[in-house]
């Protein structure tokens, strides 16, 4: 019995070794750094300070601004990406000679690096005479160029839109593949019974798409939480527009304060971990059904 119990562990040992050295060990080390005063430029003065870094972050207005900005972006990414991904998937599911071309075109935003996305949209929403302002001025909807990135909320909304633009391709492909897995006989039977298009969608498509919702939710949430490149490209290193990742980057890699940066990492880990816990629990419930 004992020998049988040992075998799986032996077989798993290479994987555990790699996971241990590249995931668990750095995670533990980061936690230890977070309890130290550790500035890379003052490596002669590294000392244990307990939870002081955490206290410093939680009492810092920059942290709460970054957290509220992250929540704002996440909320709008979920609010917009979800229904638009569904709609795009449904549209791509319609039979048309252009299906393959449209599907390929829909993937382009997903394929572009986030920084390139951010720079592209920065030119579109350039505060002077960017494309958006030119169109609005041409249509007579505004009399002077609108400063898109000056105002905190319009800048964050813009960042959320850029993230939405990037995640919709994945979401729509996910919806499309799920729709294509639904047997056509169900739709035929519904049509025979005289159902409308909406009834077909509500009674057949929607319930059968429900299992992918947690995955879609998870992917769009991750994209919303991880917004970084887009914000820096759109508006630079402004405190009032920082999200948690930008705040972390600034602390760790610009200020070279690894102790404080490690504490921020753990706070991000805890908040994303809580979100992830509920997702996994939900997926587990779905599977057990």
């Amino acid at each position: 019995m004992k020998k049988e119990n040992l075998t799986p562990w032996l077989l798993l040992s290479p994987c555990l070794l790699i996971m241990g050295s590249t995931v668990f060990y750095p995670a533990i080390r980061t936690f230890l750094f977070s309890m130290q005063r550790y500035r890379l430029t003052e490596s002669y003065d590294i000392r244990f300070i307990g939870l002081d870094n955490y206290r410093s972050i939680l009492s810092s207005p920059e942290f709460w601004t970054a957290l509220s900005n992250s929540v704002f972006v996440l909320f709008f990414v979920l609010l917009i990406a979800f229904p638009v991904s569904m709609l795009t998937g449904l549209l791509l599911n319609r039979k048309s000679p252009l299906n393959s071309v449209l599907t390929a075109a829909a993937i382009i935003p997903w394929a572009l690096p986030p920084l390139v996305n951010g720079i592209l949209w920065r030119f579109i929403f350039y505060p002077g005479y960017g494309l958006a302002n030119r169109i609005l001025l041409g249509l007579g909807l505004i009399s002077a160029p609108f400063p898109w990135t000056e105002n905190r909320f319009s800048a964050l909304l813009l960042a959320a839109l850029v993230v939405v633009w990037r995640v919709i391709p994945f979401g729509s492909i996910l919806v499309l593949s799920s729709l294509q897995a639904i047997p056509t006989e169900l739709y035929e039977a519904a049509r025979v019974d005289g159902s409308s298009r909406f009834q077909e969608y509500w009674a057949i498509s929607f319930p059968l798409l429900l299992p992918i919702f947690p995955i879609l939710f998870l992917q769009t949430s991750m994209a919303g939480i991880n917004v970084f490149d887009e914000l820096l490209a759109l508006s630079g290193d402004r405190y009032e527009l920082s999200t948690l990742l930008v705040y972390h980057y600034r602390t760790s890699f610009r200020f070279l304060d690894l102790g404080l940066g490690s504490a921020i990492s753990y706070l991000i880990l805890l908040s994303s971990g809580l979100l992830g816990y509920f997702y996994i629990k939900r997926i587990g419930k779905e599977r057990s059904r």
Binding site: R122, P127, G128, P147, W148, E150
Partner: peptide
């Protein structure tokens, strides 16, 4: 000064 200088470098 151009207002765009507030947003872009």
């Amino acid at each position: 000064s151009d207002p765009a200088n507030r947003a872009v470098s």
